[in-house]
């Protein structure tokens, strides 16, 4: 599998930028400890704690996807890495596959650390929580990664993309906290992941009628990804 060497490389790159790893894991851990401090070493109200953990795992899924999907490809495109490896590997699919798997592996490790910490602090059942979390990222990470691929199809420069994703993350958090409308899950992937998290963690029950919304959103996100891959640019903007 020719993606394996690239997976290793992208993992090295992700581990090199340790501040991102701390940011994606540190913010959820800090927030959970602060807001749930009343429940530390108490066994009661597991559902409240689990809802909170579900929200922050949703945040991590979205943050990892936004940092390693389209915006990261824009940076690789502008550095001409994308162009170089398009020809070495012979296809863009192996680069995308390597990008997805590398972020998925690191996301899984981060979630595992978060789960272990949560179980130690709040006395939650580790195996159940870990299975629920892994199911959540398996279900939500591919469509959200696919959604953010649309950045790679846009004529955005490297200097534009970083502030843009910072603003977007804050918008997503704001929208998910304000919970204005259910239909917001079309535009807010944190909301989308959180709704699935609530279902997996047993907080809400999806009736057959309400199931259409996450399924439609999943298909919508995957469709955007497929369209973005077709329209993806390989030549850096600065040369055009």
């Amino acid at each position: 599998m020719n993606s394996f060497a690239m997976i290793k490389h992208f993992l090295r790159v992700l581990m090199y930028y340790k501040i991102n790893f701390i940011f994606t894991l540190g913010v959820p851990v800090g927030s959970i400890i602060y807001t749930m401090r009343g429940y530390i070493f108490h066994m009661s109200n597991q559902q409240i704690v689990q809802t909170h953990i579900g929200y922050w795992i949703s945040y991590m899924v979205v943050l990892y996807a936004i940092m390693n999907s389209g915006p990261s490809l824009v940076i690789l495109r502008e550095e001409q890495f994308l162009k170089m490896f398009l020809f070495i590997s012979g296809s863009v699919r192996s680069i995308l596959c390597a990008k997805f798997i590398s972020q998925f592996l690191l996301l899984s490790i981060s979630v595992l650390i978060l789960d272990i910490l949560s179980c130690l602090l709040f006395g939650l059942p580790i195996i159940r929580l870990f299975i629920q979390s892994i199911l959540l990222i398996i279900l939500c990470s591919p469509p959200i990664f696919s959604l953010f691929l649309f950045f790679a199809a846009l004529p955005l420069r490297q200097e534009t993309i970083t502030p843009l994703i910072n603003v977007l993350i804050f918008c997503f958090i704001f929208l998910s906290v304000s919970q204005i409308n259910h239909l917001l899950i079309f535009v807010n992937p944190i909301d989308y992941t959180f709704q699935i998290a609530r279902f997996l963690f047993g907080v809400t029950v999806f009736h057959a009628v309400r199931l259409w919304l996450p399924i439609t959103v999943t298909l919508f996100y995957l469709l955007i990804g497929a369209f973005a891959v077709k329209k993806m640019r390989f030549l850096p903007i600065f040369r055009n």
């Binding site: 599998m1 020719n2 993606s3 394996f4 060497a5 690239m6 290793k8 490389h9 490896f85 070495i88 590997s89 012979g90 192996s94």
Partner: peptide, 9 residues
């Protein structure tokens, strides 16, 4: 070397 040679398949 691994990146270039193995990524080519």
């Amino acid at each position: 070397a691994e990146l270039i040679l193995c990524a080519s398949g």
